[in-house]
């Protein structure tokens, strides 16, 4: 059994590789040249001593140098994960790239599973209960979401392939200890609040958030490798936006330098208000507010679209499934962010 992992050097790809250490793996990484490939090989060698091949999903035939015959599993983890990504770039990498993985999969005669790491937000603008089924197009708040939905469709449309779609939550820490090795919209937002650069809260405080650790998510992904193909939503237990903010500020208040500044807790604002703020902030020359807000704004719209993700299939397929205390996780992650003065280094 040979598993090909795309995006193996990414935040999750590396952790999945570590979880599958000892198995027959081929790691696909994107690199500009031999120097970068050598550097990535050296880094991944510390995780697993397995072949590392260069694959750029923007190439016409990115797997031309990969032998399809031994491959029985593909975990497609490579993606551009940025909420402010342009439509063209998202299409090129996340959609066309997935189509190329699909084309390669069709050449793998022994293929037993093709797993796409997607996102819960491929659900787009829909509200309410979200089931572990294919989504129709109800609109999306950013091109990233659209591209992940389109990537799902790209794999689920043609019959015959053993496709597993794993829709992932927002990862805010490596593990329950709260260590943060990669920033995303959650951390950018917390940084804005901690710095006093934002006192508005985009979204409905009652909106549930699906936050999780990389550890939980990798456990889920590896469990799903033994599960039947299908769509699974990986959630470890929601927390509301309002509780998340209250929890973060409770942690911030323990920081003497934060406490001295007596910063107010943010007040909820409507969509148009937040859009106006983000628009006006574009003109704030060179300060930290503009880029941080730009990274948050394309996702903020989701905070007005409450969703309850069903996990029936996940729980049935993963006997080890346990809900996690999301409030405790936020507390741990925010404590770690303060300890590091919001400087994140990959580890």
């Amino acid at each position: 059994m040979t598993t090909l992992i795309t995006g193996a050097d990414g935040y999750l790809g590396r952790r999945i590789t570590a979880a599958l250490r000892g198995q027959d793996l081929i790691l696909a990484v994107r690199c500009a040249d031999q120097t970068e490939l050598d550097r990535k090989r050296a880094r991944l060698a510390r995780v697993a001593d397995v072949p590392v091949v260069p694959v750029d999903l923007r190439d016409a035939d990115p797997f031309a140098h990969v032998d399809p015959r031994p491959i029985t599993r593909i975990i497609h983890a490579a993606a551009l994960i940025r909420f402010d990504v342009s439509r063209d770039t998202a299409e090129q990498v996340n959609v066309a790239g997935t189509a190329r993985v699909r084309d390669f999969a069709q050449r793998c005669d022994r293929l037993e599973q093709l797993m796409l790491l997607s996102t819960l937000y491929s659900a787009g603008r829909r509200r309410g209960e979200v089931h572990e089924t294919r989504h129709d197009d109800t609109g999306f708040v950013n091109h990233y979401e659209w591209s992940k939905w389109a990537a799902e469709e790209c794999l689920l449309d043609p019959p015959g392939l053993p496709v597993t779609v794993a829709r992932l939550p927002t990862l805010i820490a490596d593990d329950a200890g709260g260590a943060v090795a990669q920033y995303n919209a959650f951390h950018h937002t917390m940084r804005l609040y901690h710095a006093g650069l934002l006192t508005l809260l985009p979204g409905d405080p009652a909106t549930p958030l699906s936050l999780a650790t990389a550890e939980f998510t990798v456990d889920a992904v590896t469990a799903l490798l033994a599960a039947p193909p299908g769509i699974y939503q990986i959630c470890s237990g929601p927390v509301t936006l309002g509780t998340a903010i209250d929890t973060a500020f409770t942690v911030f208040d323990q920081d003497p330098s934060f406490r001295r500044r007596m910063l107010p807790r943010p007040i909820p604002c409507d969509r148009a208000g937040f859009r106006d703020l983000a628009h006006a902030a574009r003109a704030l020359r060179g300060g930290p507010l503009q880029p941080a807000l730009a990274s948050v704004a394309p996702f903020a719209e989701q905070l007005y679209l409450p969703k309850h993700f069903r996990t029936d299939r996940l729980r049935a397929a993963w006997p080890g499934y346990r809900t996690h205390d999301a409030t405790a996780l936020i507390e741990a992650a925010c404590t770690d962010l303060i300890k590091r003065s919001f400087h994140v280094t990959a580890h």
Partner: peptide, 15 residues
């Protein structure tokens, strides 16, 4: 916030 910079001044303005 006595020595707040321009961005902090804008950021705290709304609340």
């Amino acid at each position: 916030l006595g020595r707040a910079d321009d961005d902090e001044t804008v950021g705290t303005y709304f609340a």
